[in-house]
Design a protein around this nucleic acid. Structure first.
Lengths: 147, 147
DNA sequence: ACACTAATGCGAATCATTCGCAATAAAACC
DNA sequence: GGTTTTATTGCGAATGATTCGCATTAGTGT
């Protein structure tokens, strides 16, 4: 009913089938982890959360790249040197709040850019289309600001 | 004369001295390159533009990191996998337009985020300060959209 | 000229990410 | 159910970006 906040096993499986992927144990588990975590995860974090047997990195990278290409997950580089991947839960896109010290990442649901994007395109001298944007805020989380 | 659009040798040198750096040939040349280019440069691009003798990468990385730490240049990762550095010309900050195909990067001078940043902080549950943001737009440049 | 220390150069190390290729295992087809 | 097709996996090695250690060089202040 209404908007889903989490995803069940069969949902994850359906999603895979629907996008033309195969329902493999690995990709199910990966989507499981991503869908339960409402923020961008680095590869290292995913590996840490991984409960199944040994995890091959190449396989993980390939699956994530696959998912990102078809829009199942969103990839973002938050100036931390490593890519992060986030399950979109059907949301078109959103932004992030990144702690400059500990790299804690929080989602920002509001988006104030859409109209501005048009202006940017109008003023540009060498672009003919703008179809997306990344907006990340940097600051200090409560824990880090105490230190 | 008001706002400087480019930087002379002595300006670059003064900047170094003022920030507590030494006026070395390498750092002068590096700032020279950066200040003449009004967009974020990747390490590879800098090396390509380098006219002086052999260029050591470790030295280059260290200088750029140094400059970024004191705010002389700004580092941004534009989801291209490599960091880029841009001379700020005294501007506080600004945004970019990135071609999804050829990675052409254009500066966007307007900033519409400052007020929004405050709202983001207010709504956040685990951050106590937001002091900067990155905003990058992705699209297609004129050349790439023709193909 | 001298001392102090930032900056450099070089090679090796590390980290993230990708590639090649043979082995597995879904999905589809008989 | 057995077979074919082909996506996905696993492994090891390659690549690319970035960092480190350490001895050497060269600005800067005295």
């Amino acid at each position: 009913m209404s908007r889903k906040q989490s995803v069940t096993d069969s949902d994850v499986g359906d999603m895979l089938t629907q996008k033309g992927y195969r329902r493999t144990a690995g990709r199910m588990a990966l989507l499981e982890i991503l869908s339960k975590t409402r923020r961008p995860l680095s590869i290292a974090e995913i590996i840490r959360l991984w409960k199944k047997d040994p995890l091959d990195q190449a396989t993980l990278y390939r699956a994530l790249e696959d998912f990102a290409r078809t829009g199942v997950v969103h990839r973002s580089d938050l100036n931390t040197g490593t890519a992060r991947y986030e399950y979109l839960h059907g949301r078109p896109h959103h932004h992030h709040l990144v702690c400059a010290k500990c790299e804690l990442v929080e989602d920002v649901e509001v988006c104030v850019i859409t109209e501005a994007q048009k202006k940017v395109l109008q003023r540009s001298s060498s672009f003919t289309a703008v179809y997306s944007h990344n907006l990340e805020f940097f600051g200090l989380c409560t824990a880090c600001s105490k230190v």
